[in-house]
């Protein structure tokens, strides 16, 4: 059996290289399964936790139209979490199992959701910048080697690009509005710009798992490549809106055509990742509270389903 291992792995790599999707029933190297599990779980948790900062603004949305858009958007995020938890289940990790790891702090989610949403423009920034970054990250993932993940990504990306446009539109409306609205937009940009750039993860030099993930088709571009792509696409939009990128070092490198940015504060990133961000405690507490408050409801649902099933069996026997 051991003798088969190398050839199994070779076959697997061939499957990857020939762009043939890996499906749940296929053999896969344990490390591939592990990487993928970590990645999908983190992604699922990010959608689920990511609902919180925006959800707080649904009840405060300044028009019914915007309220409706935001409500639908947060709903989409719940849907994304569903797809992703379902993809995770295909790898043998149940939703509750994954979820409990989120609740006890063992599992990670995107650090950007540990920043507070402090004004209405933040809702726009989360759509425009965060979802914009998500798209840059995820469009390649819809070509991920793992079938269920790739297919979830296709649906998710379609919706995210919607959110991205809606976020931009929200900010555009504010920048065309009163001086206070403009100031709110700039304040929000100042707070969300750097955290968004950190969404792409540490610089390639410090990204240990990247190489293998790329070989396995789980990751298709490097962190720095994706970050640069996002910057190049977003800076002109910021300028178009008449806002200011909060980076004194930012400049367009005429030769390469790329925008060069100043140094990213990776210490802050690490602090926040390690639970020291402004809202880590609140986010996890909110998730725990919903889980605990809902426990009697889940128990009732299960008990009712059991009774119904028992009745059905009984009925069948009697009839």
């Amino acid at each position: 059996m051991n003798d088969n291992m190398p050839s199994l792995e070779q076959a697997f790599q061939q499957q990857i290289d020939s762009k043939c999707k890996v499906e749940p029933q296929d053999w896969m190297p344990p490390a591939y399964r592990q990487s993928l599990t970590r990645q999908i779980a983190q992604h699922a948790h990010s959608e689920y936790v990511g609902m919180l900062p925006e959800a707080a603004w649904i009840t405060r949305a300044p028009t019914l139209q915007r309220k409706s858009i935001l409500l639908a958007k947060v709903q989409d995020e719940a849907g994304h979490a569903q797809y992703l938890y379902a993809a995770l289940e295909t790898l043998g990790v149940g939703r509750e199992q994954a979820y409990l790891q989120l609740l006890n702090g063992a599992a990670k989610y995107l650090n950007i959701f540990n920043y507070p949403a402090m004004n209405w423009a933040d809702v726009g920034m989360i759509g425009w910048l965060t979802d914009g970054a998500a798209i840059v990250n995820q469009v390649p993932l819809s070509r991920s080697s793992y079938g269920p993940y790739a297919r979830a990504m296709i649906r998710i990306c379609q919706e995210e690009s919607f959110h991205h446009r809606q976020g931009f539109d929200l900010i555009r409306t504010m920048t065309e509005g009163t001086p206070q609205q403009r100031q709110m937009a700039q304040d929000a940009l100042d707070r969300w710009w750097w955290p968004t750039l950190m969404v792409f993860g540490p610089p390639d030099a410090d990204s240990p798992h990247s190489q293998r993930s790329m070989q396995w088709g789980i990751k298709l571009f490097s962190n720095d490549e994706l970050r640069q792509k996002f910057i190049d696409q977003t800076v002109p939009q910021v300028h178009y809106l008449g806002l200011r990128v909060p980076d004194p070092c930012l400049k367009l490198d005429r030769e390469s055509g790329h925008y060069k940015i100043g140094p990213i504060d990776w210490d802050e990133f690490k602090r926040s990742i390690n639970g020291q961000g402004m809202c880590n405690q609140d986010r996890i507490q909110a998730r725990n509270k919903a889980w605990e408050d809902g426990s009697w409801v889940r128990e009732a649902t299960a008990a009712y389903a059991d009774k119904q099933a028992a009745l059905k069996t009984e009925g069948n026997v009697n009839v």
Binding site: Y48, M51, L52, A55, I58, T59, K67, L71, V74, Q75, A78, G79, A81, Q82, Y85, A286, K289, A290, D293, G294, S295, V297, R298
Partner: peptide
């Protein structure tokens, strides 16, 4: 809307939303 993000399960959350 006050339930959005805080339902007993993702499905209940979605249903209420």
């Amino acid at each position: 809307c006050g339930w959005t993000g805080h339902g007993p399960t993702l499905e209940d959350d979605l249903a209420l939303s």
